[in-house]
Design a binder for these strands. Structure first.
Lengths: 254, 254
DNA sequence: GGGGTTATGATTGTCGGACAATCAGACGCG
DNA sequence: CGCGTCTGATTGTCCGACAATCATAACCCC
């Protein structure tokens, strides 16, 4: 943006494997290749691009890693829809590397959750609500297991935001979701009181959604998150500390 | 979450190149390798892992693509901090592939911008404000060039959110930012009136930040986004249409 | 004829070796 | 000290090869 206009463009020799990747990527992004369409075999790509198989393979690896292409049963290549999870896991790793603090996570989650819940209040269907309720029931079953509670909590909020029918927000939330999960475990772990309050909050959130009561939904979202913070503080953690202790391989996912 | 406990774990033969990538990734994520640290040459990695160079290369390509490792001048490998841009570009590509609509983008942007601006009101420094002001000055210089205005607008909002000092939010916003940019160009393009209103809104936002006036900041953020939507509608686009028309290679970036 | 089994070919993952181009660093020269 | 040159190291790309696996077709048995 604020750069001086330079006389010559920078010379950047682009390696062949990268050109292979970009060529396929362009086809996909332009819509000429649609998700599910088969891409040729490696041998075919070798012929098409006129490069060696090693080069093709290096190029394909890039797309495969990014989720743009995907190997279904057997190992044939086909165009895939990169799911948010994949991007999210990478994004949350980046957040860990950047040493974000719990405070940042909390602030962002507060804003995103409030936005999500408002949309959910507007748009949730009966099916959405039924799903949320069965999640709550399942949570009650495992109330004594902090890890399981945290897992169901994570699922609950994902379902909730899906009910809001906004995929941009969904994608925006997911990296933080993955960071929240391990900390919820810590926050709930202390006492059974924690799990109880969590379930109550979930129940009130569903009730608010059912009544289309926006203010009630906002209120309980805030309470829920404040509880989360308190549980976290009670566990002796510092809000302004980077999140790198808790985040084990559990969040990595296959 | 809702799966039955199975007796045996699924058998997933992990290719060697992937193990190479994961091994290096673990070292980085665990902190034993810090950003900037050199990773060995390909030959060294070949010796360490006991696999062929082609295999090592395929593995490295993955990390390199994800930004976890990075080749500085010459082409030596070193650990890199994946910057949000890189993730964001991939995320916004995913959004396009999923055919999100302008309405989704607008809703999410509204929520995220309001959160950003509130933090910016709290935390912006004199330097931040000076930067924003010089951006506005620069925008005025190019008022007649919609593309340039859109570019400065994008920069403005990035600076604004950076002033909020919350990297989680920053990462959450960036994918949508990249989608907004091309549409701003469309929205402003119609009349010079559009650019004028945009600059006015920016000015009021900076003023609000300077006065630490949260309500004023929220108000002008909303106005700014409503203007954006109106400009967009005036250009004859449909809010509930997927965003795939405008999103050219301009957003891809090197 | 249908269901299971076996051969066959295609495809991928991995390997070893090779070479040109390029870069870092040493060397020599003015 | 600045400059060109040389040398070794490193990367990008290529070739050819082989075992393991998968898809498919041919086969056989009931």
């Amino acid at each position: 943006m604020s750069e001086v206009a330079e006389k010559f463009a920078r010379i950047t020799p682009v390696p062949a494997y990268q050109m292979v990747a970009e060529a396929i990527e362009r086809e996909i992004l332009s819509g000429r290749l649609r998700p599910g369409d088969p891409i040729g075999t490696e041998a075919e790509l070798v012929k098409q691009f006129g490069v060696n198989r090693s080069t093709v393979r290096e190029g394909i690896r890039l797309l495969e890693h990014g989720g743009l292409v995907h190997r279904d049963s057997s190992r044939r290549l086909s165009v895939g829809l990169p799911h948010y999870d994949r991007l999210a896991s990478r994004a949350s790793r980046a957040l860990v590397l950047h040493q974000v603090t719990f405070r940042e996570l909390l602030e962002a989650t507060m804003a995103l959750s409030l936005a999500s819940i408002e949309l959910a209040v507007m748009r949730a269907t009966e099916d959405d609500i039924a799903g949320l309720e069965s999640n709550i029931a399942a949570t009650e079953q495992v109330m004594h297991n902090p890890a399981a509670v945290a897992a169901y909590d994570s699922e609950f909020h994902i379902m909730l935001e899906r009910a809001g029918r906004n995929r941009v927000l969904e994608l925006a939330r997911e990296p933080s979701n993955m960071l929240i999960y391990p900390t919820t475990q810590v926050a709930v772990g202390g006492s059974e009181q924690g799990a109880r309050r969590l379930i109550e909050a979930h129940r009130m959130l569903v009730e608010a959604v059912r009544r289309r009561d926006r203010e009630m939904a906002r209120l309980w979202t805030q309470r829920h998150l404040i509880d989360w913070r308190k549980g976290f503080e009670k566990a002796g953690m510092d809000l302004d500390q980077p999140i790198d202790t808790v985040t084990g391989d559990s969040a990595a996912g296959g």
